[in-house]
Nucleic acid binder design. Structure first.
Lengths: 228, 228
DNA sequence: CTTGTAAACTTACGTTGTAAGAGTCTGACT
DNA sequence: AGTCAGACTCTTACAACGTAAGTTTACAAG
């Protein structure tokens, strides 16, 4: 009768939690389901995780650890690959986007990641202030874009389908002429996909930063911010 | 014995829901508490709102209606005041930020707002494609910044306090040198507040758009995007 | 006064996170 | 080999949640 009891580890719990959130969404992640997924009762999880909130914190940190950040090239390509990596990771774990917004205490991988980003900028001649500026704009844009993209009713990688058209044209055309004009243009252009807006915005910001860097200069490092 | 029954309206429900979310946070908003707040049983709310999800949708739309969007000036100041207004509104209703990310079907005020933004851009010479670009970058940045700002552990309007210092220096200085350097700089500069990063990023983006607009020109309107 | 209907209330169910405590396995030390 | 402590799992239980189903109330029209 003595059914061998299963022993689990913290890493197992986290991995299973992420997997469950990936397939069922974050609202589908319950302690009981998570326990069942690894063959254990819900309460057993609490020996590896303080509570559900801490579990979510740990999951968020693991997601950050997935982000690719090369440090062996110039800052611009570093930031670029990071941006694309963030977007890819958030695509894999859509729930993580909403978590990042609600967690207040960052994990170790998160902090390490941010430190590395700053490190690249500083190394390539950004003053402390300009590095702060750069980090702010880039992060805000990348994060904001990912959220925006996810709340769209269609797949952003593919050109718009008939289905998308139906969804998009559900609001009255004459009442919102500019929106109508824009969606019409989207639909007629088969090459268009929303994802290219990411590239556009990112390059716009990187251009701006490059200009700001040129003004401050890589050798002359002002004590205070590049502006004012 | 006949305690007079209270009659409520949909608007009352929504207003109370927003008030409750403002004070208790979105997770503190429950149907029972909401009912109690307006002197009614929880189930009575369902005569004015289909379910909690719809309630949240309606709340989100009301928040969008609060955003100030002047249309009687040039696009740049329009976008600027809009940006500041979004930030202010999201400061008043922190929960709305997370809702926007999870709602997929926008309300009427939301759609109208977006249409008005596009209208301003088109009026001032943006091609359809460039207007789409502008809208994407700006919205992503504004939204992303607001989220970023909220997940920071300190008040972004005030210069850093002792408390903030304690929080910020909780991670090992030697392990994350660049982060340490940056927070050190923050703390020594009494004028600094994180809010100015919003201005910096916004201006950087607006500058970029202005340049793109100048290239395309207000008269010559290319069929396809300004880039490629 | 009757009666129809909109809107309130009551009760109930399944699901959630997790507190409390009891049971069981394992590995270290005699 | 024996045992004992500590780490881990399981059982039971509870309060709070969203909401389905059905009942009661009160006002407005005839």
């Amino acid at each position: 009768m003595a059914e061998k009891r299963i022993r689990i580890t913290r890493d197992q719990v986290l991995a299973a939690a992420i997997g469950l959130a990936d397939t069922d969404g974050i609202e589908g992640l319950t302690m009981r389901k998570l326990g069942r997924a690894i063959g254990v009762e819900a309460m057993s999880l609490y020996h590896h995780v303080a509570n559900k909130d801490r579990l979510l914190d740990a999951m968020t940190d693991l997601v950050f650890a997935e982000i690719d950040l090369p440090t062996d090239t110039d800052w611009r390509t570093c930031m670029r690959t990071r941006a694309y990596s963030v977007r890819a990771v958030m695509g894999r774990h859509p729930w993580a986007l909403r978590l990042v917004g609600s967690r207040t205490s960052p994990g170790l991988a998160t902090v390490a990641h941010h430190d590395a980003v700053l490190g690249v900028l500083r190394r390539d001649g950004f003053s402390v202030a300009l590095a702060a500026h750069a980090f702010s704009v880039l992060d805000a844009f990348i994060y904001g874009f990912a959220v925006q993209e996810q709340s769209l009713p269609f797949d952003t990688e593919e050109p718009p389908t008939e289905l998308a058209q139906e969804i998009l044209s559900q609001f009255p055309t004459d009442q919102f002429p500019h929106l109508a004009e824009m969606t019409a243009r989207y639909l007629e252009d088969n090459e268009y996909n929303y994802a290219q807006e990411f590239t556009y915005g990112l390059d716009l910001i990187l251009d701006g930063l490059e200009r700001a860097l040129a003004v401050g200069g890589p050798t002359y490092t002002p004590e205070r911010g590049a502006r004012e």
